[in-house]
């Protein structure tokens, strides 16, 4: 009995493997009913898309293929027409994308916040500070290492803005206490933890990150750490291959009461990490 059940299981697995090897798997069968969303690693890696997309697919039959890269890269890819929808977090770049004619229009989707994390030892003594600019100055003064994404991502740009506002020329310290990893959020966290460096991350990625070691949130709650995500339908007039109808269906769903509720109900370790704030309602 047991053996035959195990054999049946093995046969089923072989069938799945064979199907994948020979390209018979479901996605390729699902033909044209899919869109490509250019988005950020923070949204993808935190598991948000895996949580909310099945409901959308169930309802509309549209498959959403998410390419998760830094915001800068995502915007460039979309500007090449290699995506139907853009979901990122860099307001200035998003507005420019629309102004340049690559996007139809931009809408707020959700927000969360950035946090500054660091080792338990806290060499710069910034723990529990509520003023991020003061904390940044303290880190710079102490010479404790700080790891930056350095990759043109939304998080990177937000971080650069904070250094500017704090009146510190971080670029001048690059290679010294200021370390630019040129990598995604997760890789940068891994590197920072290896270096014992402070690092700024979006809360969603931080909460779901699996390699925290002795790292803690040091600075949070400053309104300057607000992190807004926006969604843009790529302009089909500019990029004829864009699936405007399917893309619009997705944008509308994300902004709808239902989509917003799906985002609000997503939890990592029991915590809400994205807060829907769409104002434009379809």
């Amino acid at each position: 009995m047991a053996t035959s059940r195990r054999t049946a299981g093995a046969v089923r697995r072989l069938a799945v493997l064979a199907a994948a090897v020979f390209g018979l798997s479901a996605p390729t069968v699902a033909a044209d009913e899919y869109i490509v969303v250019q988005s950020t690693t923070s949204a993808e890696h935190s598991g948000l898309f895996d949580a909310i997309l099945p409901a959308f697919r169930e309802q509309t039959g549209i498959e959403v293929r998410v390419v998760a890269v830094g915001t800068g890269q995502a915007i460039k890819n979309a500007a090449n027409g290699d995506g139907d929808v853009l979901l990122v977090h860099d307001r200035l770049a998003e507005d420019k994308f629309v102004a340049d004619g690559h996007g139809v229009s931009r809408a707020d989707v959700m927000y969360n916040d950035f946090v500054v994390v660091g080792p338990l030892g806290d060499p710069a003594g910034v723990a529990s500070m509520a003023d991020v600019l003061a904390a940044f100055r303290k880190i710079a003064d102490s010479g404790a290492p700080f790891a930056s994404r350095g990759d043109d991502s939304g998080t990177h740009k937000a971080e650069l803005r904070l250094w500017r506002e704090a009146g510190i020329d971080a670029a001048a310290a690059s290679g010294g206490w200021y370390r630019e990893t040129g990598a995604g959020m997760g890789s940068t966290l891994n590197t920072a933890i290896g270096l014992g460096a402070y690092v700024m991350a979006d809360r969603a990625t931080w909460v779901s990150f699996g390699n925290k070691r002795d790292y803690r949130v040091m600075v949070e709650g400053d309104p300057r750490l607000f992190n807004q995500y926006g969604i843009i339908l790529v302009n089909a007039d500019r990029h004829p291959n864009v699936k405007a109808r399917l893309g619009e269906t997705f944008v509308n769903w994300v902004l709808s009461t239902e989509g917003q509720a799906a985002i609000a109900s997503y939890r990592v370790d029991g915590r809400q990490v994205f807060f829907p704030n769409a104002t434009k309602r379809p």
Binding site: R13, V16, L17, A18, A20, V21, F22, G23, S25
Partner: peptide, 14 residues
């Protein structure tokens, strides 16, 4: 060897 992993292995091989 759950189905997700098999799918990934299969695509890698393909």
């Amino acid at each position: 060897l759950d189905a997700d992993l098999l799918e990934i292995i299969g695509l890698s091989l393909r």
